[in-house]
Computed example of a mutant assay.
Amino acid sequence: MHALVGLTEMRGMQMDVLADFMGIGHAQVYDLANQLDAANTVRRIPAVQRGPKWVIPTRAAATWVLGWRPGDWQPAPNFATHCRAVARTRVALGARATDQWVCDRTLRHQQPGPGLYPYDGMLLRPDKPAVAVKVDTSAHLTGAQLTRRLNIVVRQAQQDECAEILYVCDGRLTPDDVATVAQQTLPDIPDLALRVTSLDHLATTARPHMRSVSQPRDTSQWRATGGAH
Rank of each mutant, 00 (worst) to 15 (best):
A60C: 01
L166T: 06
Q14P: 07
D120Q: 13
R96F: 02
R211T: 15
S214L: 03
T147L: 02
L124C: 09
Q145E: 15
V102P: 00
P175W: 06
C162P: 08
T81P: 00
I56K: 01
A144W: 03
W54S: 01
R105V: 11
D170M: 00
Y167P: 03
A38N: 12
T197E: 07
R88K: 14
A144S: 13
W101D: 04
R11N: 10
A19R: 03
D200E: 15
A157P: 09
T63R: 10
L36Q: 11
L150I: 06
D136F: 04
R90N: 01
F79Q: 11
L146F: 07
S214Y: 02
M210F: 02
R59I: 14
G71N: 11
L123G: 02
T63M: 06
T219L: 12
A139Q: 13
Y167E: 02
G71F: 05
L146Q: 11
P77M: 08
N78R: 13
I24E: 03
Q145A: 15
T185A: 12
F21R: 11
Q158M: 14
Q215G: 03
H229K: 09
A95G: 04
T137N: 10
L192A: 07
P46V: 10
F79T: 09
E161S: 14
L32Q: 12
D99H: 14
K134T: 08
S198M: 06
V86A: 09
S198I: 09
H82C: 04
T185F: 10
T98E: 14
R96S: 11
R211S: 11
G227S: 11
A224Y: 02
T197G: 06
T89F: 04
G115S: 07
K128G: 00
A60R: 13
V29K: 03
Q221M: 04
D99T: 08
Y167C: 05
